[in-house]
Simulated scan of single mutants.
Amino acid sequence: MNLDFIYFENGIDRIAGRLPGMPRDRVVINRLFVYIFNELDHVYNEHLSEFGLNTSSFLALAMILMSNEENRLNPSHLGEALVASRTNVTRLTDDMVRSGWVSRKPSMQDRRRVELSLTPDGRTLILKVLPIIWRRIEQQWADFSPAEVVELDRLLRKMLEGLQRFKAAS
Rank of each mutant, 00 (worst) to 15 (best):
K167H: 15
A168C: 08
L130P: 00
E115Q: 13
L152N: 13
F37L: 12
R113A: 04
E80H: 07
N68C: 06
L78Y: 00
N88C: 07
L48I: 07
P146W: 04
I29R: 10
R104N: 05
A142E: 14
E161A: 12
S85M: 04
D95V: 05
R26L: 11
H42W: 11
G21N: 06
E80C: 01
S145L: 06
N2Q: 05
G162Y: 03
D41G: 09
Q164E: 15
L3Y: 03
L32G: 01
S170V: 07
A84R: 08
R136P: 00
F37T: 15
M96C: 10
E80M: 09
L155Q: 12
P23S: 01
L118Y: 09
W101Y: 10
F33D: 05
P75A: 01
S67L: 08
E80L: 08
R98M: 10
A16G: 01
Q164G: 04
P23Q: 07
D41W: 11
P146G: 00
H47E: 15
R14L: 09
W141L: 15
R104H: 02
P23H: 00
E50D: 03
F51K: 02
R86C: 05
A147Q: 15
N54M: 01
E70P: 08
E151G: 02
I6H: 10
M108Y: 07
T90Y: 10
Q140M: 07
R72H: 06
L48M: 03
G122K: 03
H77N: 10
Q139N: 13
L125V: 01
V114C: 02
V27K: 09
V43A: 12
T87P: 01
N45I: 02
A60V: 05
M22G: 06
Y7Q: 11
L53F: 02
W141K: 07
E9L: 06
L40T: 07
L127P: 00
G21Q: 03
A60Q: 05
L78R: 00
L163C: 12
V97G: 12
R86W: 04
F8V: 03
V89G: 04
G79M: 05
N74V: 06
G52A: 07
S57M: 07
I64D: 00
Q164D: 10
E39F: 14
L127Y: 01
D153R: 10
I29M: 11
I133D: 00
R136F: 14
T87M: 14
V149E: 10
E148T: 02
T93D: 05
R86Y: 06
R91F: 11
R18P: 00
K105A: 09
R98V: 08
M66C: 09
E9V: 06
A81E: 03
S107M: 11
Q109I: 11
I137E: 15
M1G: 14
E70N: 12
R112I: 08
S67C: 09
E46Q: 14
T87I: 14
S67H: 11
E138D: 13
N88R: 08
L155I: 13
L130D: 00
S67T: 00
K167Q: 15
R113C: 03
P120S: 05
V28S: 06
V43L: 10
G100S: 10
R18M: 08
H77A: 09
R26E: 15
F37C: 04
P131V: 02
N2D: 14
Q139S: 13
L116T: 09
I6M: 12
P131D: 02
S117G: 10
N38D: 12
G52L: 02
S99E: 15
S56G: 01
P75E: 02
S76Q: 13
I29C: 03
G11K: 15
V34R: 11
L32N: 05
Y35C: 03
